[in-house]
Amino acid sequence: MARVKFLCDADRCIECNACVTACKNEHEVPWGINRRRVVTINDGKPGERSVSMACMHCTDAPCAAVCPVSCFYTTADGVVLHSKDLCIGCGYCFYACPFGAPQYPKVGNFGSRGKMDKCTYCAGGPEADSTPAEYAKYGANRLAEGKLPICAEMCSTKSLLAGDGAIIAEIYKERVMKRGYGSGMWGWKTAYSDSPTG
């Protein structure tokens, strides 16, 4: 099976935040939680770039390594998912995650954390595919329907790419060759230990 990844071509991202909005809408993500966000580096300065970032579904994921109840698992496609039934909302995955992906609803006492929520690569959770139970906890399971994540699918400039890691890396490499520049495959070194332009 393919090893799916995200790739944000920052030289194409126009910071429209459509990926953020589409994600929230597709999964009915609760108020205050953003599974994806667009971060602008060097805002207003020469060389400014915007990067759309969510869970990168790391190889050897740090969240899974530190979880005290071992609620994470990696699917055959390389998607890192978690069980909200097991999650105790301790916050460890948030400390370990290099990308700030884990989010917590402030439902507990003293504003403490509820069960963690993060990008599922539109692949749902441990429940049976495309069931109401799965939707309520994790949102839509587009992968089960043979579709790619909604954020990348509807990116207007095709900056955000999702799919087989080898293929999207090839697409990015072709783009860089053709236009002669590229600011790198943001997060890949950290998430997959891959070389950024490789």
Partner: peptide, 26 residues
């Protein structure tokens, strides 16, 4: 960087220190 959503913590794009923390924990 800068984000347009209210959560200021979301402005952290990459924090490699998370790996050190993981190393400490595990």
């Amino acid at each position: 960087g800068r984000v347009s959503i209210p959560d200021g913590n979301a402005a952290n794009l990459i924090q490699p220190a998370g790996r050190d923390w993981r190393d400490f924990q595990r």
